[in-house]
Design a protein around this nucleic acid. Sequence first.
DNA 1: CGTCTATTCAACCAGACGGTTGACGAGCGG
DNA 2: CCGCTCGTCAACCGTCTGGTTGAATAGACG
Lengths: 124, 124
Amino acid sequence: MSADPLSLVFSALADPTRRDMVARLTVADATVNELAAPYDVTVQAVSKHLKVLEEAGLVSRSREAQRRPVHLEAEIFDLMTAWIERYRRQAEERYRRLDDVLRSMPDDVEPVLPPNPPETGAPT
Amino acid sequence: MSADPLSLVFSALADPTRRDMVARLTVADATVNELAAPYDVTVQAVSKHLKVLEEAGLVSRSREAQRRPVHLEAEIFDLMTAWIERYRRQAEERYRRLDDVLRSMPDDVEPVLPPNPPETGAPT
DNA sequence: CGTCTATTCAACCAGACGGTTGACGAGCGG
DNA sequence: CCGCTCGTCAACCGTCTGGTTGAATAGACG
C-alpha cells in the first residue's frame, strides 16, 4: 500500500474520471448512482473510484436511508498545494541563485532575497 | 496512453520516489546516477522514473558528453495548481451558497448536476 | 413477508506499473 | 584500439488498477 497521504491524493486525481467526479462534487453532494450516470461505466466501477477518493481523504460518505451521499472534502487539496508551492518556490529561488552564481563563480552561495515571504505554504 | 497532461502530471507525482527526485531537482540539476544514488533501486529503475517525469513535462534532459543532466521544468506545476485552485474555489463558494440556502429554506430546491463528460481538457 | 432500489463485495481479466537482470550504444581516457 | 563509465533498451516478473459480471447486503415499501 502506498500509505502516504500525498501519494494517495495525487494518484486519486491522476484519473480523469475521478477528477471529473471531484469537479462535480464541488457543485453539490451526490449519490453513487447520480455520480455514475454521465459515465460509460458500471456503477460498480464508480463505487470503486469513490473508494479510492475516500481513501485519499477527498470525499466522505454519510448514510441516508439506503443511499450513501458523497461529499467532497476540499481541505485535502491543501496537502497538494503545500507540496507543489514549496518546491515551485524552491525551484524559482534556485533559478535566481543560479543566475547570480553564473555571474560571480561560486565559492559561497548566498541566500538571495526571497521576493515571496514563505507564509502561504511554509511546510516543515 | 493517458495522453492528457493533467493525468500525466498527477500520476507522475503519485510516486514518492519521483516526488523526491523532483524535490531534489529544485535544488540543482543532476545526472541519472546522482539521482539514483540515494535510492535502493537500480539505475535502470530511476531511468524509467525519469522517463515518466519527462513525459509529464516535469523534467527535461540535455546532453553533455556521455552524461544526461536532468533539469526540472517547474512551470508544469501551474497546470495542477490551476486545476486544484479552480475546484477548491468552487467548493468554497458552494459552501457559502449552501449556507445561504439553509438560511432561507426554499421548497423547490433540487440538486442540479451539470453533466460533465469524463474528459479533462479543462474547458477553459 | 416479498420485492424493489441503492450500493457494495467477490471473482475474474487485460493492461499498466515498478522493479529486476542482461545486453547494448555513446564517449572519454589509457 | 581497449576498456571504463553513463545511460538506455529489452525481456521478464509480481503486483496494482480499472473494468467487467454476478451475487450479496441494507433499507424502503406494498
